[in-house]
Amino acid sequence: MSRSMISVPDYCRPAALAGILVALAVMAGCGPTKVVVEGNFPPPLMEPLPLSLGVWYVEDFANHEFFDEAKGRSESSWLVQTGAAQVQMWDTLLGSMFENFVHMKGPPGPGQMNPVVNAVLIPHVDELQYTIPTQTNVKVYEIWMRYRFELVKVNGEPIAEWTMSAYGKTPTAFLQSDQAAVNLAAVVALRDAGANFATGFNRVPEVQQWLQARQQQERKPQAPRLEEVSTP
């Protein structure tokens, strides 16, 4: 009668395995509260501007996340990842706001191979703040963001640079987790950012000047063609 012998490492024994699982669960509970912002963003209902716009998302923007370390034992750390939702929202917004919208292949600058466009927009998130009801006495979850936009030509020559804020809040709701509420507040803040940009783009003084200069250039009479300049 033969008996096969299989050697099992110590940590695979049921008791040890259970211990490891409990330890992992406890450690997972100690990690930061993570929120990957997800939402649906509608396209804006407006006449598209007669411009060909390129967008360049810098890595910090496309992978934007915000980490807030716990101040005490009663609080937990927070990691809010907004990058994917940012790209999704700005793609939807810019795609409907401008007649032609493209993603640039690289940062605008001399010598860089890129599609030919009238201007390139480079968005940045300079600051993000959030509050949850455990931090304040107000029963709302809030997200506040400050954006900085660079509008440049394909060769990198600057056209305009401006900042813009966005704010989103959501009330406490029965059976809604902190994560779900922070996500909802972030989606509201992103919608607000889109609304602020869509309604305010034409009002940025430097952008206004640039658009006016473009209009004047387009209105200038074209140089007469050779055959039209004919003679006696």
């Binding site: 804006p44 209902l45 607000d192 889109g194 609304a195 602020n196 309604t199």
Partner: peptide, 11 residues
């Protein structure tokens, strides 16, 4: 959603 961004809290 149908009238975005004209009925957001800001607008």
């Amino acid at each position: 959603n149908a009238l975005y961004p004209w009925f957001e809290p800001r607008t």
